[in-house]
Design a protein around this nucleic acid. Structure first.
Lengths: 126, 126
DNA sequence: TAACGATTACGATTATATTCGTAATTTATA
DNA sequence: TATAAATTACGAATATAATCGTAATCGTTA
């Protein structure tokens, strides 16, 4: 009953590392692990292994020039976000973007964020 | 490195069944399987098993009055959608709702959907 | 009531995700 | 150069998800 597969969707652990890579830029396993360690207790080799798997899946690229390999996200944050969002829209919102937006916005959404969204809508010629 | 767990997040297969339940209302395994079969080739006992697991997780409620148990979604579609969206916002959008909305809307979004969103914004007193 | 058909219960299998220990390798340095 | 420190490679263990076959159970009806 599984679906798709053509587009590789990062797992949770993978997304955690991608977030770090997008924020830090290219980094070694050590640097990534140091960062991840500030919020989670995860072993060094666990991070290494996940990065290796991500490399196999082409979720990251790897520079092996130096002893300590340097990893970088293969796709931009924006691209990945779009893909995740589209996946959710199709699986939980019957393909309707507006339904998703309606659910996304609630009382906890700040006025600033609402403003940002208004401006985005205005910038569209629709 | 796994996260959360307090709030049960339906898996993909589970979400597929929930979508059916939200659409059909309470239904038997047979009915659910018939529906699922129109788009996927999934065995009857597979659907049954997933529903049993969902029952253990309290994702569905079950009426055992009759021979054929009747399953129903434990939570509303709206509630579940909100929870999935919040999960994604926190894990992939740094907690920013507006960023998510910006990614959600693109050239493929219809003018009607844009209108719907505009109206939603106007209905907010922010 | 006995047999049949439908349904649930149970357990096993497979796949993927996550975790980490240990070995092998490489680089630096004593 | 030999040792130590750091890093990668590898494999195994555990957890969860998804799948389905078979057995047990229940109701219907011949």
């Amino acid at each position: 009953m599984a679906r798709d597969k053509s587009v590789v969707k990062p797992t949770e652990a993978e997304l955690t590392l991608l977030n770090i890579l997008w924020q830090m830029g290219p980094a070694t396993v050590r640097q990534i692990h140091d960062t991840v360690s500030t919020t989670q207790k995860t072993g060094y080799t666990t991070v290494l292994k996940i990065l290796q798997i991500m490399h196999e899946k082409s979720l990251v690229i790897r520079d092996e020039t130096n002893r300590a390999h340097v990893y970088a996200a293969a796709n931009s944050e924006m691209h990945t976000q779009s893909s995740l969002i589209k996946d959710l829209i199709s699986k939980a919102f019957g393909g309707s973007t507006s339904k998703l937006v309606m659910r996304a916005i609630d009382e906890s959404t700040s006025a600033e964020e609402i403003d940002d969204i208004r401006q985005l809508l205005n910038s569209l010629d629709k």
